[in-house]
C-alpha cells in the first residue's frame, strides 16, 4: 500500500508540494462573520491551518462548523473577514474555482453521484486535472485515451489504498453507508488536494469502520503530506488524530490549541456540558 503511495508521490507533482514549508500557514481565516438573513452562523472567527497538520474543528450541534467549511471552500462568501490560502487573499469567485485551487472536501450528508459507479465517482475527483478538450474526447483515440488511462492509474492507487477494489464497478447507491463515506473520501483524494476538508467523516459508523477511517486519514496526512481540516463529534477520535483543535460554540470561537489545552479549557467544558449563556 505504501509502495503505491510513494510511487504516486514520485510520479505526480502533487499540489501538496507547492513550495509552502511544512508548518507554515497554508490557510488563514481572519475575522470571518457569516449570517443567513437574521441568523448569525459565524461571528468574528479567526484561526489558521498550518501546512501538514490535521486541524480539528469541533463544537456542539449548530455551532457553525459546516458553515465554516462552506466559507473556506468558497461555497459561501462571508459578509466580513478575509480568507488567505497559500498567501493569496480569496476574492469572490465561483465555488468551482476554489476546488481548482486545490481545496477538496467531503460532506456531512453524503454527496456522491448516485447514478455512477465507485470508479466513476472517484474519477470525477480528477475532472479538474483533465485538460483535453471535448473534441479530443469525441475522437477518443490518442490524447484523450492516454489522459483517461493516466488518471485511471492514479484513481486505482486510491482504490487500492482505501481497500475498495471489490466495489470498483458497483453503483454507489447500492453501497452501505460506511463504504459510501469511504468512496467520498476517495473522490476528494483524487483531486490531489493541498487542503482536504472532512465534514464528519465518521458520523454514523460502527467502531470498526471508525478505526479504518481514522487509519486512512492518518495515512493520507503522513504519506501524502496532505493538510486536513476535520470536523468530528467523537472526542476520542479528535484527540487521537488532530494536531490542533478549534472549538466553536454558537458561531463564536471559544477555544484553540492542542487537544490537551482544549480539553482543559473551562469555556469548552462549559459548552459541552451545556452551561447556559
Amino acid at each position: 500500500m505504501n509502495v503505491h503511495l510513494q510511487e504516486d508521490l514520485s510520479k505526480h507533482t502533487l499540489r501538496a508540494d507547492d513550495g509552502i514549508a511544512k508548518g507554515a500557514d497554508l490557510l488563514k481565516v481572519e475575522n470571518i462573520s457569516l449570517s443567513f438573513g437574521g441568523v448569525k452562523a459565524i461571528t468574528d472567527i479567526s484561526f489558521d491551518i498550518k501546512k501538514g497538520e490535521i486541524r480539528a474543528i469541533i463544537g456542539p450541534n449548530g455551532a457553525g462548523k459546516t458553515s465554516m467549511l462552506n466559507v473556506i471552500n468558497g461555497f459561501y462568501f462571508p459578509q466580513q473577514g478575509t480568507i488567505t490560502f497559500r498567501g493569496e487573499k480569496r476574492r469572490r469567485a465561483r465555488a468551482s474555482e476554489t476546488a481548482r485551487d486545490g481545496i477538496a472536501r467531503t460532506f456531512q450528508n453524503i454527496a456522491l453521484f448516485k447514478g455512477m459507479s465507485t470508479l466513476d465517482n472517484i474519477m470525477t475527483g480528477r475532472i479538474t486535472l483533465q485538460k483535453r478538450s471535448l473534441l479530443w474526447h469525441a475522437l477518443w483515440k490518442g490524447p484523450a485515451e492516454r489522459e483517461e488511462i493516466e488518471h485511471r492509474e492514479a484513481v486505482e492507487r486510491i482504490i487500492d489504498f482505501l481497500e475498495i477494489e471489490h466495489i470498483r464497478k458497483t453503483p454507489v447507491g447500492r453501497l452501505p453507508y460506511g463504504l459510501q463515506k469511504r468512496v467520498e473520501l476517495g473522490r476528494a483524494l483524487a483531486a490531489d488536494p493541498a487542503l482536504l476538508l472532512l465534514d464528519e467523516p465518521m458520523a454514523g459508523m460502527n467502531l470498526e469502520e471508525k478505526a479504518d477511517m481514522s487509519r486512512f486519514i492518518l495515512d493520507v496526512n503522513q504519506q501524502y503530506g496532505t493538510t486536513i481540516a476535520l470536523i468530528e463529534h467523537d472526542m476520542g477520535v479528535v484527540m487521537d488524530l488532530s494536531d490542533r483543535v478549534v472549538v466553536l460554540d454558537y458561531g463564536k470561537k471559544i477555544g484553540d490549541g492542542t487537544p490537551d489545552e482544549v480539553r482543559n479549557n473551562p469555556d469548552v467544558i462549559d459548552a459541552y456540558l451545556g452551561v447556559p449563556h
Binding site: N73, F75, R94, A95, S96, E97, A99, R100, A104, R105, F107, A111, L112, F113, K114, G115, M116, T124, G125, I127, T128, R187, A188, A191
Partner: peptide
C-alpha cells in the same frame, strides 16, 4: 446527479 457537489469538486 448532484449539481452542488459537482460544483464543489470543481466542475463549472
Amino acid at each position: 446527479d448532484m449539481d452542488i457537489a459537482a460544483e464543489l469538486i470543481g466542475i463549472d
